[in-house]
Design a protein around this nucleic acid. Structure first.
Lengths: 191, 191
DNA sequence: CTTTCAAAGCTAATCGTATTAGCTTTTGGC
DNA sequence: GCCAAAAGCTAATACGATTAGCTTTGAAAG
């Protein structure tokens, strides 16, 4: 191997994530990123194709982290599907609140280039789907899953963009809403 | 009045919205916008402070449009609060699907500068709140409202960013989910 | 030990975009 | 006809992404 690399690709992505969380995506410039490694901006091109693929990688990393975090949270959770779903919801929300900038980068843009890797999306949906199946049955699982994801994601996005102006414990509201949603699927309804 | 203006501020904002819908926000450049009016980019600064305030104005316009659209849809709606809520949800979703780029600009960024004018947010929440009050009562109205908004907004954002990979009628799923959510609030539950 | 060569850096340059400064043109009201 | 201010324009600056082409380093081959 020639010339000892100052840059490890994993570290590069993590550093990018950190910078994004510190000052927002708009503030992430290749110059600033390069500074963190004591190199010049153009040298970064030896490690990534361009800024877009870097952000893609950041999204993949964030998604993988989220999947792991949720899986871990389930290990210590009860057996009750509803409790497990609540746990996932709480963990999801906590994650988004902990990494607001990278979380919203995950879904905030319509740019197809930044779209979350379908495989990660799949892995994200899976545990949710398992419990949904147990709660509402196979026929409704996909629909119920999508709605739950929408509720959770939407809540978190509105919370992050400070759209819940009128105060109150958002944590409580979040659980109330999620529980109401699940209750709704358990209540008799037309097919 | 001096020098016949080529630019009317309302038209400017609408043109910006159109360009954003046509090619995405990233593609909206002051140069391209100026071209639409047959003037040079720097001349735009006679009409707007900078690009950020322009985008702010775009958001305000989009928000106002959304509020109007929802209000109009309610005029021909039934008296049943649940039906009215469903109508609002459908209208909201249709609006977002019709103006995907500007809709996601509304909430897609964490940038406080682009945050939706609280007054518009208020006007948006009001009709939803009225029906919620009728459905779940005053004590729960705020929580139920927030959850409904989260569900609707989240669904639309996931749909726009193509996260619902597995097909099926999203329109149906959307209504199922919203109905389930409302049903949940109507079902007995702990305070 | 020397040579070789590819990876990883660097500098210089290009291009696109936002924004500012300062000049010019137009025209309603005098 | 004159003039002030609005609306345009050109030129210039700054910054960020990206490319081209040169240089350095160090492991491995001889």
């Amino acid at each position: 191997m020639p010339y000892p690399s100052q840059v490890d690709i994993e570290t590069l992505i993590d550093t990018a994530r950190t910078l994004i969380e510190q000052s927002g995506v708009e503030q992430l410039t290749l110059q600033r990123l390069a500074d963190e490694f004591g190199i010049k901006a153009p040298s970064l091109y030896k490690h990534v194709k361009n800024k877009t693929t870097l952000l893609q990688a950041v999204n993949t990393r964030t998604g993988a982290l989220l999947v792991n975090t949720i899986q871990e949270s389930l290990e210590s959770a009860s057996d009750d599907p509803i409790q497990r779903l609540l746990t996932m919801g709480r963990t999801y929300r906590d994650f988004a609140l902990q990494y607001p900038a990278t979380y919203s980068l995950l879904y905030g843009t319509l740019n197809p280039e930044l779209r979350l890797d379908p495989q990660i999306a799949e892995a994200l949906a899976l545990p949710l789907q398992v419990e949904m199946m147990a709660i509402v049955g196979e026929a409704n699982a996909l629909a119920a899953l999508r709605g739950a994801w929408a509720l959770i994601h939407g809540f978190v996005m509105l919370e992050l963009s400070q759209q819940f102006q009128r105060g109150g414990s958002l944590e409580t509201v979040f659980e109330q809403a999620l529980l109401a949603y699940l209750r709704g699927w358990l209540t008799p309804h037309a097919p």
